[in-house]
Design a binder for these strands. Sequence first.
RNA 1: AGGCACGUAGCUCAGUGGCUAGAGCGCCGCCUUGACACGGCGGAAGUCGGCGGUUCGACCCCGCCCGUGCCUACCA
Length: 982
Amino acid sequence: MSPASETLPKAYDPTEVEARWYPRWTDAGIFRAEAADTLEGGREPYVIMMPPPNVTGTLHNGHALFVTLQDILIRYHRMKGKNTLWLPGVDHAGIATQAVVERELKRHEGQSRHDLGREAFVERVWEWKERNGSRIVEQLKVMGAAADWTRERFTLDPTCSRAVNEAFVRLWDEGLIFRGERLINWDPATRTALSNEEVEHEEREGELWRFAYPLTGSDEEIVVATTRPETMLGDTAVAVHPEDERYAAMVGKKLRHPFFPERELAVIADSEVDPTFGTGAVKITPAHDPNDFEMGKRHDLGFLNIFDLEARVNENGGPFQGQDRYVARENVKTELERLGLARGGEAMTHAVSISERSGEAVEPMLSRQYFVRAAPLAAEACAALDELGQTELIPASWKSTWDHFMKNIHDWCISRQLWWGHRIPVFYDTKKLEEAIHSDASRKGGDTAALRALEGGAQRGDLVRLALDTVDEDLVRSFSVASRENLCEGASGERYVQEEDVLDTWFSAGLWPMSTLGWPEETDDLRAFYPGAVLETGFDILFFWVARMMMFGCHFMGRAPFGHIFLHAMVRDAHGHKMSKSLGNAIDPLDVIHGISKDALIEKTKTYPVPEKNLSRVLKALAKEYPDGIPASGADGLRFSLAALSGQGRDVKLSIPRVAGYRAFLNKVWNATRFALMGMGEEEPPPLDACLDRFSMADRWILSRLQAATERVAAGIETYRFDEAANGVYQFFWNEFCDWYIELSKDALMPDASQETRQTTRSVLIHVLDASMRMLHPICPFQSEEIWQRLPGRDTRWGSEVPFCAVAPFPEVDASLVDLEAETQIDRVVRAVSRLRNLRQESGLPQRQRIPAVILAEDDAVRESLGSVADEVKRLARLSELQIDKPSAYSVPTQAAVHAEPDLQVVLPLEGLIDLDAERGRVEKDLARARKELEGYERKLGNPGYVNKAPAEVVEETRARAGRCQEKIEGLLGSLERLGAS
RNA sequence: AGGCACGUAGCUCAGUGGCUAGAGCGCCGCCUUGACACGGCGGAAGUCGGCGGUUCGACCCCGCCCGUGCCUACCA
């Protein structure tokens, strides 16, 4: 019989334990889900689609949070017997990935993607993906993610691509996808269109600058105010409010453009103009401003595009052609000043639209793109939440934000001028193209650029591109075919040219809940696992992603893709700042798990894109924040922390000291196990059922508390209150099991206790540990598995068909073990011990000194129950002797410290041991507190409104409290008297 | 500008229309008590952002204000 303290190390080492279990779980295939279990076996499915991280990135702490929360849900429901599927995958992340590879290409080979050509470039991106994609998978495994890797998906793999084409063609056929000219968000840096959701608004310092447009044939002028003077090169009108008397006479007149005398600007009246802002007159640039665009349509103005694709002034800008927009801004101002048209200006902060991708200011551009008509789809998605009740948004506070977005949704620009992604499955029929060009030309008076190109024998591709941009939209549609098959392959290949643009990444991501299961094929997986139970993700992609999945799921499957949408908070640093590499405060989850030294952390941060001017400040802050680096918390430690810190607010502030605190908990769990196994050897404890009639009060108590904890933890997970679940395990295990049960049961394990008592206590210890590990498992899978495996009698309890804690049942509440009597009694013991400890320390008695004590209680049963644990009380309060008596049978000595509880009094006879003044001070303080409390009760009871209107039991309770308080005061007065009399 | 959160101990956060408002970390003191110093025991510390209102009673419900954060938005 070897003591367990020799087999279990003294301190818990997560690194060693965590490396061991993941392969065993996957080798046993316990994360794999079978459609047949549900389709034939009728097992209820529980499905989560993992939000696919960007294939080229690495996981950060935001990912760590979603991994933790989803894994908790998945593991919990698996233990609850559901047919559980967590489907993992990665996203091709169009712009982000392409940008990374382009940057690498430039840096290492000095080439642009255009130098390489489309095919070769895409090849490079695939290579990059193959090299980097697996890192995410490794990270997920280190985190413990219980995902079904046999079903791992990539948004560009054939199954997903097929779904994308299917969805596109169906929407096209239904008229929900169209190609049209709109004012879109153009990112001049990455040279692609963006959706509204990829644009951020930032407040920036700017200038509201004024200049004058002279009226033609008059000395009069009209002064306009603008933050973008360069756009005046594309102005086609000036608008005023129809009721603005200052300008009433000018409406309908013409203005002269200072640089282009041939262009006449109209003065128009429109009620959208705010007469109180600026000069009350607005310059209108319909091709480069969303408001002006609308205005232009209303008033049939000219749309003059003045920028090229890199936001340099184009040929319409005359002398300013070729200048960057910001350069042109200054030059236009200078020139207007020279012409005497400048009219001053003032500083102003205004919102600038920024590309989320490049950080560059977005240029609104008139452009032909593919769009999804989002409104009808949004209506279906809203119905799923509202009328149909298929989906619930949690926390519900997001509902109003959701509604506002969905009811005001704009058409969704889905074409991107990129090479990495799903190429749009639209094919242009070159035969019909010619007809279209001719029809277009005849509509437009016979001569068009496209016609000239056609007759000049232009290359097919160039001709298509030209026609797409210039031929009337309905005629473009006449030579466009959306097709599931690639029409450029095979016999008819010669005839077709495929659209060059690719789809917005979120288009394929929107199909994720279906495409991953094989849609449009009616697969078993699709039948078994659609819809999913919950979509768990950050609120920052509610619209990017969640809304799109809802729209597509409802539209194509006729049913919302998940029952719950749970939006978790954002992970921030300890100060509440968003973690980001460019701020230098991003912490890699692996560094938390494995630990990292201060120096290594600083070196690593130096490789992040922190702006030069901030670097030294950032590094200094880092050194201050982590003077000792980051201690290794293990995956379990990080997971526990994230769960415990994830309230339902919008932030999770990850503070490393806090993580260390939770890691201490895991050490505590480990050592409680060491204690339980100590001296037990291979000997199996009897099953709990065999001990029912031999339980001590403490046994009954801890088993009762276990039921409460079980309920709390399960409820926490089921209501997405992961902090509740984590705290539930924490408090039960540490504050009840370790602090009291283990302490109370030590005597029962000593060699002088009877064999029977020892066996019963061990049975309870092992039972509680077994249940606790199963309760802890969803949050801390590694440690719970390790300990659960080591508990003696595992096979007897669970049999060989339950080889892992990961597949053992989650504890169920056993009502027969709920024991209120035991709770009352142990609560009394806890109070007595605590008061004794408090008295001795308040009286300044050193910890090592054992002292005698007396507990007085009127009630026979109280005395009896305390008497039954007298030895334990003596040990816990470090007493030399303990007398338990009726108050009437004991006369409190003059020099004594006394504390009264409602049902008992604790007394430390302190003859010669105490400082009388200090004792008197303590009692007086107590007295003051009690008097204040009593005052409160009396004020309430003296209030007729309270006595009459408050519920009778509340009033009664207050009376009882007042009574007890009064007794306590009398006791304290008695003490004071004794002390004073000495 | 509108919307949504949040404001509770030095820090990070729980909390319920009625018990003397709690936890972890930090702080102070004591303790190498036969699992654990990543530990044990005890302690100090909060006018629950401000002002009103509803109520017998408000940290909690309502209104306004102040502050912070986020989202949405066409004021050039």
